[in-house]
Nucleic acid binder design. Sequence first.
DNA 1: TATTGTTATACTCTATAACTATA
DNA 2: TATAGTTATAGAGTATAACAATA
Lengths: 155, 155
Amino acid sequence: MTEKEPAAPPGLEAHLGYCLRRVSNHVSAAFARSLQQQHVSVAEWVVLSQAAVRPEVRPAELADRLGLTRGAVSKVLDKLEGKKWIVRRTMADDNRVQLLSLTRQGQRVLPQLAEIAGRNDERFFGCLDAQEQDTLRRLLLKLSEFHCIRDVPVE
Amino acid sequence: MTEKEPAAPPGLEAHLGYCLRRVSNHVSAAFARSLQQQHVSVAEWVVLSQAAVRPEVRPAELADRLGLTRGAVSKVLDKLEGKKWIVRRTMADDNRVQLLSLTRQGQRVLPQLAEIAGRNDERFFGCLDAQEQDTLRRLLLKLSEFHCIRDVPVE
DNA sequence: TATTGTTATACTCTATAACTATA
DNA sequence: TATAGTTATAGAGTATAACAATA
């Protein structure tokens, strides 16, 4: 018996990164489909969530935090503004800067979207018991912290 | 004190799916960048790996397995054939069908790409000890099996 | 000049569906 | 008619870089 080759997994499954991606893509795709039924993209959900958590956030800060260009953020904001979920206000001191905030409608919609995310989580991770879920979360957080992953994933 | 709100995580981090995606996107992006330095896309790496594991595989089977359309697979094959890493042979019994196989050059390149994947894994998951890595793999496999995830992720 | 946000353009990846050829 | 693979077209999403307004 060799030590290195498990013989069964035919190459790709040997890589942890591959296993992670396979599972992650599956959950994310399901989530994206659920959102899409409400005509919401993942980027919109992430931007809306971030704007809710950081009142008066600026587009530039969102771009940094999300790992997108300002142009890309600008377009997402166009969509969210079109839905009347956020408003862009010009800062009094510096007219170049925009301050973002959720409208009442945006505040009402956010928990509905969060519930979609919650249901998606439940459906997918429900096959793990509480302790396993905890372990998984702990390992993911350890990886996040070790590598200083602060970016909010959009794609 | 409320029971539901952990107060600290501001919304997004409450979702396991979100944590998973954040970590997965980070590893995958790093991997994609490493591959790109060799002018190889993730889709090309996946298709090449699959063709190596299943000699004489047909494009249609790859499309099913990868969750892509046949048209998309056709284009990836064009690229791989252009690099002389695979060849398409017409099946003798049925001229509609193609049988794929790696060229000698493709066979030589594959382990080099696998090493890139390996190094990427090591760099990223190295902060977990052997047991933690094992636990993570076990949890991911459990999720894969429970949800019958067979698709090989491409994006 | 430097900075914030917008826009014009192009690129990549993928799907849909029409198409060719074989069966 | 049905099937395997290709190709034409279109759409989503993003980046790059030129741009306007402001500082």
